[in-house]
Simulated assay, not measured.
Amino acid sequence: MTDPNITTANSTHKAWLIEHDPHVDTSWINRCIFGGEYIIALCGDSPVGFIRYSWFWGKIPYMDMVYVVPEQRGRGIGRKMFRHWEMLMLAKGGDVLMTSSVVDELEPQAWHRSNGFHEQGRISFGSFQPQSEVFFIKDLSC
């Protein structure tokens, strides 16, 4: 397999995103596509992964979700999408990045740390999410 093409998702990717991003509803997927807030990895014309992001307080780039199809994991696709997103956020004036994971998700936390993020604290959301959420920051100003 050749290296995937990393780009901003568009409406042609909508059906695939609906199928592979079940954590949000279709209206949110539409909003993110329209706002350019999906980074997608393509092998040929076939999507193999995405990053969905938003803006914390309307200013801080926040990586909501990173996903790679199971059969393509371990090939560096997530890291390539992350590097693409990081450069895009730098170009947009971002000097800090933010992300999070549930406290018991050790593999995602290790991935965030391996990409330069540092834990900054935890928040409990009560009955909405019984486990605490661990927040991570990456300072791009260094």
Results as ranks from 00 to 15, higher is better:
residue 3 D to H: 10
residue 5 N to G: 08
residue 9 A to W: 01
residue 10 N to W: 02
residue 12 T to E: 15
residue 13 H to V: 00
residue 13 H to W: 01
residue 13 H to L: 00
residue 14 K to H: 04
residue 15 A to E: 14
residue 19 E to S: 05
residue 19 E to T: 06
residue 19 E to K: 07
residue 21 D to M: 12
residue 23 H to G: 10
residue 24 V to T: 06
residue 25 D to Q: 08
residue 26 T to N: 15
residue 29 I to S: 01
residue 34 F to W: 06
residue 34 F to M: 12
residue 39 I to D: 08
residue 42 L to T: 11
residue 44 G to I: 06
residue 45 D to P: 02
residue 46 S to G: 03
residue 49 G to D: 02
residue 52 R to P: 02
residue 55 W to Q: 13
residue 56 F to K: 14
residue 59 K to F: 09
residue 61 P to Q: 11
residue 62 Y to M: 09
residue 64 D to H: 04
residue 66 V to P: 05
residue 68 V to K: 02
residue 70 P to V: 12
residue 72 Q to H: 13
residue 73 R to P: 01
residue 73 R to G: 02
residue 75 R to F: 07
residue 81 M to C: 07
residue 81 M to F: 06
residue 82 F to Y: 15
residue 82 F to R: 00
residue 82 F to I: 04
residue 84 H to W: 15
residue 85 W to P: 01
residue 86 E to N: 05
residue 86 E to S: 12
residue 88 L to V: 10
residue 89 M to Y: 05
residue 89 M to P: 01
residue 90 L to P: 00
residue 91 A to Q: 15
residue 92 K to M: 11
residue 94 G to R: 06
residue 94 G to C: 07
residue 96 V to K: 10
residue 97 L to D: 08
residue 99 T to F: 01
residue 99 T to R: 00
residue 100 S to A: 13
residue 102 V to E: 03
residue 103 V to D: 05
residue 105 E to S: 11
residue 105 E to Q: 14
residue 106 L to T: 10
residue 107 E to W: 09
residue 108 P to N: 14
residue 109 Q to E: 09
residue 109 Q to I: 04
residue 110 A to Y: 09
residue 111 W to N: 04
residue 112 H to N: 11
residue 112 H to K: 08
residue 113 R to E: 15
residue 113 R to M: 13
residue 114 S to V: 07
residue 115 N to D: 10
residue 121 G to C: 01
residue 122 R to I: 00
residue 123 I to V: 14
residue 124 S to C: 09
residue 126 G to H: 08
residue 126 G to Y: 06
residue 126 G to Q: 09
residue 128 F to I: 11
residue 128 F to W: 08
residue 128 F to V: 11
residue 128 F to R: 11
residue 130 P to D: 12
residue 131 Q to W: 00
residue 132 S to K: 12
residue 134 V to A: 09
residue 134 V to S: 07
residue 137 I to W: 12
residue 138 K to V: 05
residue 138 K to L: 09
residue 140 L to M: 04
residue 141 S to L: 14
